[in-house]
Nucleic acid binder design. Structure first.
Length: 949
RNA sequence: GCGAGGGUAGCCAAGCAUGGCCAAAGGCGCAGGACUUAAGAUCCUGUCCCAUAGGGGUCCGAGGGUUCAAAUCCCUUCCCUCGCACCA
């Protein structure tokens, strides 16, 4: 036997599979189809081990289904839609050292890198790289179906899809506010920072921009808490800051210069008409909105021109910043006299407006005293205080008498109402901003912009939502937690912008060329396109022939084949073949993807299928996998942090990684990557490798434990397949790679050596391993002369071989051995003879009697006394005990009398003697036998008495 | 805040739906031994506490409850993770 050596066998088998086109899906009407995909990757860099976790799960299922007799389609593609490819190419063109290092450390050659300065080169390179890595992982993908979203055939498909959405009234246009890079157009602001170089954690904040009449003009102040307008006492302005006067909506507004820039992206006409310094406003009054009181304008340094309008309305009752600024000012005599504010400031005092359980009616003052905040400079503490007050007020607060019509209202409710009322009375507008500075990949600033005519897919459509919610009940969705939440997710899912302008790779929007379909929206129905892509890849037709008629015919069965053939120029039999393929493969059985898809991709995947295709083609299943993590964080393609896959694969072998994925954790938890753990799986495979060889070399004759092994093996076989049928991958792997192995080990220990049985079960076992570790399984399969294990079928379960009774006997023997070990342990004696006393027959009879007539309870006693030759006292005691036991656990009781104990022990004296390295004697307790320690009376059914000498 | 998921021995991780063969699978780690003298090897055995005879005690985040019986069911509570949107 040679040692397990993945390096040589893995490459060898991958080449053979390739030669034989083992992965090619065939339309075979004699077989049921099984169609599975993983969510294809966006192109933004090398794949990492987290991706491979998802792809490998997909492969387990694909290979398993194939070995269960299905014809399996497992295609793959790539998703370059977006601007990531563009910015990647740009960074390469600029020779950005980070990206160059990233490429080189992943093994890109200088020649490769040379091609990567244009987007097309990036797409080509990574497509090839992904395919190489998938092949290297032994994935059962049929690449003849490959497509990517930048191809022409794909664009034809997407244009068709959007026409269908429009026909169904599911497209609409309306204004939309989104993060926009001033040069690239819309970008996504999220912590993974795919589009960004800074500010991924920024949140969109919706300010209410309040207008304060100031002579002929208005001073603007932005607030996140419109409900506090009743507590306004003054405005804060930075005396050293220059503000701008802008013409908006026919009025002149005062704000900071950055505020004007931001606002210019959100309102139509806005023009700067002058400047005014902060100093010039101080000491004057402005009329506050809603309360229509004149409030003074006071100096402060904490205002920031980059936040809101750069001017702050002061609510010292509820805003810790305002409260302490006011206190500071009151003490600052130099400042007061400089602007002659002494008298004014005297009159400025907090006005209670909100009462909360936690903080009472003057929360700002109270929290500042409690937290011991001494000055405006303690911004961390002030931030915290603000948050705490806001939380308490928002959730449990009510508006006080001072709040006019809103008095008595819950804060939550008042907030909405006051804001809406101010908007209606034109005393305020909405102003959106990001909570921190966000910088695009291109280096430009990202701001909130208004897009007046944004296209949306109307996912809010009630009928569509209802249909989807209804349909998910019939789907197989794993894990269960996701199945439970997806109806709510569908409900919550609102209209989604589906096109964008600017620097973007994708399909031109069919109704308006200035738009390009965005990345989520062009990846919803694509499993249908995989079927078509195969024919396109073969050259059966050109992209321009893939017209609306063509897709209508293939996916919707509309139009006659003659007409469609006429209008497209595609031969009739080709059209019929594509249609047939679609009918054969669809619906999709499983879409497998990472958990980030739960609230984004999976809902739109479902909704587009339901909206466009016939009910019979709606998807059947979704499976979600969690992440592979490294030192706490998600492994990220764009940020690196993961070892190149080829390095890891070389070190451990593919099958090791595959078993690691399958077994080290359930798919539904985040898993921390740990090389030491991976290495243990490598050792495990080595162990199994040797074991299978040992099995194959076994050539003895039948023995007493054969039945047991056969029974256990078939039981495990059934379990392993049941688990796979419900996609419980880890559990199935546990049975195959651990439970079954343990049975073989026990069999050997018991002296089993039946060559024929080993030959049969060994082969079946290798078959079972194949979906998980296909390379090793094929190599081991050759011991049996199997050419390709993965193309054979999994064995049937021999129901008749599964025997509770046979298994009970072994369980009994194991139990006796455990008892002996226990005693040896405790007694710390090295016994030289073990005496075992099997229960007297009358105890068996008692149990049988109780089992047959349990309801008679102690009433059984009278009958038993006459029937059994047993000491009445003991009999009564044992009956009572048996009745107790019966109530607690009938199974144990049944098992204890279902076996011939004496027989089992006598047959296995040799084995026991060998195991314990002593002599073993077995007796029937009712006989007059050697019993120096008076133990034999302790014997009961299922648990013999033991005496160790 | 809203929604979802989770807290099991040194660690990872099953079990919980259908309460009782649960001191609680399996793996890792650790300890002892075998083997060999080299490897991150392999094979046994052990691994909550007490106990020189198979027993007893405590235990599944915490606290109550239901039950003859609770890791499993119910209630309360604490803690953790994730999603809350234009990122496949």
């Amino acid at each position: 036997m040679n040692e397990y050596d993945p390096d040589t066998i893995e490459k060898k088998w991958q080449d053979k599979w390739e030669d034989l086109k083992m992965h090619h899906a065939k339309v075979d009407e004699d077989k049921d189809p099984f169609y599975i995909i993983f969510a294809y990757p966006g192109i933004s860099g090398y794949l990492h081990l987290g991706h491979m976790r998802c792809y490998t799960y997909t492969d387990f299922i694909a290979r398993y289904k194939k070995m269960r007799g299905y014809s399996v389609l497992f295609p793959a593609g790539a998703h370059p839609t977006g601007n990531q490819v563009i910015s990647f190419a740009k960074r390469v063109a600029e020779k950005d050292p980070v990206i160059m290092d990233y490429l080189r450390s992943n093994g890109a050659s200088e020649k490769d890198i040379g091609k990567l300065s244009v987007p097309e080169g990036v797409i080509e390179f990574f497509k090839e790289t992904y395919i190489k890595e998938w092949k290297n992982f032994g994935l059962h993908i049929d690449f003849s179906h490959f497509t990517d979203t930048s191809r022409e055939d794909y664009s034809s498909f997407i244009r068709w899809q959007f026409k269908k959405l429009k026909d169904k009234g599911l497209l609409t246009q309306k204004p939309y506010y989104a993060p926009v890079c001033v040069s690239c157009g819309p970008v996504a602001v999220d912590p993974s920072e795919t589009d960004l170089s800074q500010g991924g954690n920024a949140e969109v904040q919706e300010f209410t921009l309040l207008k304060f009449r100031f002579g002929e003009r208005y001073i603007t102040a932005a607030t996140l808490r419109p409900e506090t307008v009743y507590g306004q006492t003054n405005l804060w302005v930075d005396p050293d800051e220059d503000y701008v006067i802008v013409k908006v909506q026919g009025e002149e507004w005062i704000m900071s210069s950055p505020a004007m820039d931001k606002l210019s992206y959100q309102t139509e006409e806005i023009k700067m008409v002058g400047r005014i310094s902060g100093r010039d406003m101080i000491g004057k009054n402005a009329t506050a909105p809603v309360i229509h009181r004149d409030i003074p304008i006071l100096p402060a340094k904490f205002t920031d021109p980059n936040i809101g309008s750069g001017i702050v309305t002061s609510v010292p009752s509820d805003a810790p910043y305002d409260w302490i600024a006011l206190e500071d000012l009151k003490k600052n005599h130099e400042m007061l006299s400089r602007y002659d504010l002494q008298d004014i400031v005297e009159r400025v005092n907090p006005i209670p407006i909100i009462e909360s359980k936690e903080w009472g009616t003057n929360p700002a003052e109270r929290i500042i005293l409690e937290m011991g905040i001494n000055s405006q400079a303690e911004t961390d503490k002030l931030e915290d205080a603000t948050q705490r007050i806001y939380k308490a007020g928002f959730h449990s607060g009510t508006m006080l008498e001072s709040c006019g019509d809103y008095a008595g209202m819950a804060v939550q409710e008042a907030k909405e109402n006051i804001r809406n009322d101010m908007l209606a009375s034109r005393e305020a507008i909405i102003f959106r901003d990001l909570s921190e500075e966000v910088i695009c990949r291109c280096g430009e600033e990202v701001i909130m912009g208004k897009i007046p005519d944004q296209w949306f897919i109307r996912y809010s459509d009630e009928k569509l939502t209802e249909e989807c919610k209804e349909h998910v009940k019939d789907m197989s969705i794993r894990p269960d937690s996701y199945a439970n939440t997806i109806p709510e997710t569908l409900e919550w899912f609102q209209d989604r912008s589906c096109a964008r302008m600017g620097n973007w790779i994708g399909t031109k929007f069919p109704f308006d060329d200035k738009w390009i379909v965005e990345a989520i929206s062009d990846s919803t129905l694509y499993p249908a396109h995989y079927v078509v892509a195969k024919h396109y890849n073969r050259g059966s037709f050109q992209a321009k022939q893939m017209t609306e008629d063509f897709f209508d015919f293939v996916f919707l069965n509309e139009g006659s084949v003659e007409d469609v053939s006429d209008s497209t120029g595609i031969p009739e039999d080709t059209l019929l073949e594509v249609r047939r393929d679609f009918l054969y493969w669809y619906p999709l059985d499983i879409n497998l993807g990472g958990k980030e898809h739960m609230t984004v991709h999976f809902p739109v995947f479902l909704m587009n299928h339901v909206a466009i295709l016939d009910r019979s083609h709606w998807p059947r299943g979704i499976m979600v996998n969690w992440y592979l993590t490294m030192t706490g964080g998600k492994i990220s393609k764009s940020k690196g942090g993961a070892d190149p896959i080829p390095d890891v694969a070389d070190r451990f072998g593919i099958d090791t990684l595959r078993l690691y994925y399958a077994h080290s954790a359930s798919p539904f938890v985040d898993k921390e990557w740990d090389e030491k753990e991976v290495f243990n799986y490598r050792k495990r495979l080595g162990h199994l490798w040797r074991m299978v060889h040992r099995i194959k070399e076994m050539n003895g004759s039948p023995g007493p434990v054969d039945g047991y092994l056969r029974s256990r093996f078939n039981r495990h076989l059934a379990r392993a397949m049941d688990f796979m049928d419900s996609y419980s991958i880890r559990k199935s792997a546990n049975v195959i790679f651990y439970d079954i192995a343990a049975e073989f080990e026990w069999y050997f220990k018991r002296g089993g050596e039946n060559g024929e049985l080993m030959d049969e079960l060994g082969e079946k076992w290798v078959n079972l391993m194949s979906p998980f570790v296909p390379h090793m399984a094929d190599e081991l399969g050759s011991l049996w002369g199997i050419e390709y294990v993965n193309s054979s079928l999994l064995p049937n379960v021999e129901e008749e071989a599964i025997s509770d009774n046979i298994e009970r006997q072994e369980t009994y023997l194991k139990g006796v051995m455990e008892d002996i070990r226990n005693i040896l342990d405790i007694a710390k004696v090295a016994g030289n003879c073990i005496h075992i006393y099997v229960t007297p027959e009358w105890k068996v009879k008692v149990i049988e009697k109780v089992l047959s007539e349990p309801e008679r309870g102690m009433g059984l006693m009278s009958g038993l006394v006459g029937e059994l030759k047993a000491p009445p006292k003991e009999l009564s005691k044992f009956l009572r005990r048996t009745l107790d036991e019966h109530r607690a656990n009938q199974e144990t009781l049944k098992n204890s009398v279902a076996i011939k104990e004496l027989d089992i022990l006598e047959k296995n004296i040799d084995f026991l003697e060998k195991e314990f390295d002593t002599s073993v004697k077995v007796y029937l307790a009712s006989d007059e036998v050697y019993d120096p320690d008076n133990r034999k009376d302790k014997a009961i059914p299922g648990k013999p008495a033991i005496y160790i000498q």
